[in-house]
Amino acid sequence: MTTAALPVAEAAARTHAATLAAIARPGAWWDGADRLAIVRATRAAPDCALCVARKKSLSPDAAHGEHASEGVLPPIAVEAIHGIRNDSGRLARRWFDHLIDMGLQPEAYVELAAIVASTVIVDTYAQGLGLPQPPLPEAVPGSPSFERSDDVADAGAWVPLAREGRAHILRSLGLVPGASALFFATFNPCYYMRPQQTFAIGRRQVELVAARVSAVNECFY
């Protein structure tokens, strides 16, 4: 049964278009074509047979095989993308260490995580409204900047966090400032990140939705 789409919030529409345009440009550790491949891999992840088998297993280590992939990205990057997209509640330090041992640089991982999570926001919003996933722009040619912040500190996470910040989540992507800017620009219209932010539902309703999504995703934070 088809359902009429709901109205799109203007700020979100602007932001999400800007997010995809930003992803298409060269980043810090991935070029524009790679970054768009990360988006496509995120979108393809729900249909990955290995991920479906892992999701059904008591431990994600129990199922073995290869991820569904278009073959553009290194397999270890696809592992990271599918893990974050499909089974984020069960990600563990041992899994992250394996990615690094297999050659994925922590900075590249941080940027990848920001792209995956930004894609999740953009696509979840569109599909939740009854709209198709937004089309992707063409990749902008150019090389990565290899930007890495030195203003970071060990806060017990898997990667160093930005040294300053009100909360760990706001510091989480600080190792690659461009990745942090990308993700939080995408996330900001979704919550009370700025004093002027308002929603058509009340604060208690916003908090209920936020808390329920966190619980479903088994996120402790």
Binding site: I169, F183, F187, Y191, A210, R212, C219
Partner: peptide
């Protein structure tokens, strides 16, 4: 929109 945002930010918290 709020649900979409938290679907993303929970993944950042877990991935990092």
């Amino acid at each position: 929109l709020v649900a979409a945002g938290f679907n993303g930010i929970t993944r950042i918290a877990d991935a990092i």
